[in-house]
Structures are given as structure tokens and as C-alpha cells.
């Protein structure tokens, strides 16, 4: 166990955990930021996607020791009132079915649009291919990203 100082959603947090603990489980178990989901633990499903200094990463693969001194944004910190253009596009297209993977999808989509404000269908497919939606809302995810790309 060791002390780690974290910067998550613009707030300082301090946790005392095993240095190998993945960021995912610190977010969930220690900080109760449960919007970041566990789906596979091996970076295959994308449900745990967060922003690490602005880039989309799988938080199940980031040991907490590597998370220190970096800016981490989770779905809870994406916007003040849930009104990020991507979140609004998700509501407009009523994307979710079960909804479990959607926070990870949104975090992947916002990182995509930050780097590429008007992605082609193929570019969306390539980036979003790492996020599994078991309910099959892929077409709505794509439509929402395209809507959001008009506004970001």
C-alpha cells in the first residue's frame, strides 16, 4: 500500500492502495466514480475508457502508480451539467439500450472529435471499434458522433 495523489476531473484526491491497482478500481472502489465501467479487465471492451491528459485510455490497464500527476477525466467530469455536445447528441439520438457501455463509448467519441472534429464514417468505425456494445447500438452511436461533430 502506498499514498497516491490524483487529479481527477479537476479535483485533487489522495488514495492509499497497492501501486498495481488499476485506475478503474480506484475510481470505482475508492472514489465512488462509478460511471467508468468494468467489462473485461483486459482492454478489449472499452467500457472503462477515460481521458488521460486528453487521450482516451482503458483505465483497467493504467496502474495507479502511473496515474499520478496526470490529468484524468471521467464521464462524471466531462461536463458540468451533462451538456457536452456529445452527451447532448447521445440524448438526441436516444442511443442507449441497456446503457452499460455508453459512458465508455462517449469518452472514446469525445476524444475522437477532439483530434478530428469531422471524422468520416470509416474514421469513426476505426476508433469506435474498440468499444463493444452488446445491445448493438452502433448505428446510433455513429449517428450521434456525426451530429456532435457539427457542434464541437
Amino acid at each position: 500500500m502506498a499514498q497516491f495523489d490524483l487529479n481527477i476531473n479537476g479535483k485533487k484526491h489522495s488514495v492509499d492502495v497497492d501501486p498495481e491497482t488499476p485506475l478503474l478500481w480506484v475510481l470505482r472502489d475508492n472514489l465512488k466514480l462509478v460511471g467508468t465501467k468494468y467489462g473485461c479487465g483486459i482492454a478489449q471492451c472499452g467500457a472503462c475508457t477515460v481521458h488521460f491528459n486528453g487521450s482516451a485510455v482503458r483505465s483497467c490497464q493504467v496502474p495507479i502508480s502511473a496515474a499520478q500527476e496526470n490529468e484524468i477525466t471521467t464521464i462524471e467530469g466531462l461536463s458540468e451539467n451533462g451538456d457536452h455536445p456529445v452527451q447532448k447528441a447521445w440524448l438526441e439520438h436516444d442511443v442507449p439500450q441497456c446503457g452499460y457501455c455508453q459512458a465508455g463509448q462517449i469518452m472514446a467519441a469525445t476524444a475522437l472529435l477532439k483530434n478530428n472534429p469531422s471524422p468520416s464514417d470509416a474514421e469513426i468505425e476505426d476508433v469506435m471499434n474498440g468499444n463493444i456494445c452488446r445491445c448493438g447500438t452502433y448505428n446510433r452511436i455513429k449517428a450521434a458522433i456525426k451530429s456532435a461533430s457539427q457542434t464541437v
Binding site: 471521467t74 462524471e76 451533462g82 452527451q87 447521445w90 446503457g99 462517449i106
Partner: peptide, 22 residues
């Protein structure tokens, strides 16, 4: 057509699922 009543909670990462219980 009416929107999913949990949609806002889903897209903002609010606790909703069994795994979110602490």
C-alpha cells in the same frame, strides 16, 4: 416517441447498475 427515462443518468455516468452499489 419518448426518450429513455434513464438516458440522462446513463450519459453522465450516474450510479444505476448493480455493480455501482457501494
Amino acid at each position: 416517441s419518448r426518450k429513455n427515462v434513464d438516458a440522462k443518468k446513463i450519459v453522465t455516468g450516474k450510479p444505476l447498475y448493480g455493480l455501482d452499489i457501494y
